[in-house]
Each structure stands twice: as C-alpha cells, then as structure tokens.
C-alpha cells in the first residue's frame, strides 16, 4: 500500500459519502444518473467476487463491502425512497448502458489475463468502470445548473482515478516486475474521460460561478 493508492481509496470513499449526504440532506437526486450508479454496482459485484474465496486484508474486505453496500444504498434511494424517487429525472437519464456493457464484455472475453469466469468478470469490471461515468456526464450536460454536491461527487470520482494513476507509476518505479497493462490502459482512458469535466469544474470554481457543462 502506498500513499497514492490510500489517498485514492479515501477519495473514492469520500465521493460516495458526498453523494449519500447530498441525497439524504436534500432528499433529492436531481442531476444524479441512476444508470451510472447501476453500472458502478455491476462493476463492484463483478470485481469483488474474490470476497467469496480469498482474503487479502481487513481493509481490503471492508472497503469492498462498503463499495457494494453504499452503491446499492444509492440505487435504493433513487428507485424506492418515496421522496427521493420523485426527483429522479428518468426522461433525461437515457444513456443506452447496453452500448457500454456489451462491448466491455466482448472485450473482456477476448483481452484478459486468464480465460476463467472470475478473471473474465474481473476484466469486464475494469473495462466497465472506465466508461461507467458517461451516463452521469451526459446527464450533467443536459441538466443545465449542476448542484455543487453533484459536481463535487464527480470531481472526487475523477480524483480517485487520477490518484490511482500516480499509484501505478509509483509501483512501476518501486516494484520490479509489477505489470498490469489492462488496468493501466483502462484507468488512463477512464481518467482522460474526466479531463474536460475537470476543466469546466476548475474554471467554474475559479470564476466562482455555477458549474454548467456545454452540451
């Protein structure tokens, strides 16, 4: 474990806490894409299958369980909560997630480290996580004024992956033989997708104005 990876995990944890706080405090999920949340739950469930058969550390197990439960909780809020579910704008959240999930599954079946069920599903989760934020970014472009907490949520999500990039560079420099091409390439693409959001987020923050993404 290095500081970059720990900071990345904490940023990821914080992003989900910010999202849960926003939904719970405002009793509203306006601007939040249910599709992205469902994709994240699929990412966590397919990636953390090793919870069933291998133990790495208490930290590792706790964080995996937290990510699965918290994303499930967000989805419950948006789908079932009597007040919050009224604020979900399904007419705007229309990204065709199958256009993301199917190519990722086909790619996972062809490009992977091992052709076993758990390895293919794990690889699928790596590819899917790279594109899972797209429905959320599309929704932000459509809903003109993005509320601050939702903007912070997306910014923290991008920050977590950027910190993981630093973690991989650090591990390449300090751990001879450490190679994870699938994770590195997928993670770099994932961080690149955030770049234009980062640009508008920082610009709005510096000009002290509401964040709005150009459609």
């Amino acid at each position: 474990m290095n500081i970059f990876r720990f900071a990345g995990d904490m940023t990821h944890l914080l992003s989900i806490i910010v999202l849960l706080l926003k939904i719970n405090a405002t009793k509203s999920c306006a601007g939040v894409s249910l599709k992205t949340q469902e994709l994240y739950l699929l990412v966590f469930v397919t990636r953390y299958l090793d919870l069933l058969y291998s133990y790495i550390s208490l930290y590792n197990t706790f964080m995996k369980l937290f990510f699965i439960c918290s994303s499930g909780c967000v989805i419950w809020y948006i789908r079932e909560h009597k007040t919050v579910s009224q604020t979900y704008d399904s007419a705007q959240d229309t990204f065709r997630v199958l256009f993301l999930a199917c190519p990722c599954m086909i790619l996972a079946l062809t490009v992977n480290h091992d052709f076993t069920v758990t390895e293919v599903l794990w690889t699928f989760s790596i590819y899917l996580e790279a594109v899972a934020i797209l429905p959320q970014l599309v929704l932000l472009q459509r809903t003109k004024n993005v509320d601050t907490l939702t903007g912070n949520y997306v910014f923290l999500l991008g920050g977590y992956r950027a910190l993981y990039l630093l973690n991989w560079i650090y591990r390449i420099l300090t751990e001879p033989g450490y190679r994870q091409w699938i994770v590195w390439i997928s993670g770099t693409i994932q961080t690149a997708i955030y770049c234009d959001f980062f640009y508008y987020y920082i610009k709005s923050w510096r000009n002290n104005e509401r964040l709005s993404l150009p459609s």
Binding site: D9, M63, T116, W122, Y164, R179, W181, V183
Partner: peptide, 10 residues
C-alpha cells in the same frame, strides 16, 4: 500476470 495474481488493488 496470469492465474493467481494477487489483486490487492480495489
């Protein structure tokens, strides 16, 4: 890489 590679990252 390959079978049994420890996936210690989240």
């Amino acid at each position: 890489a390959g079978r049994g590679r420890v996936k210690d990252e989240l």
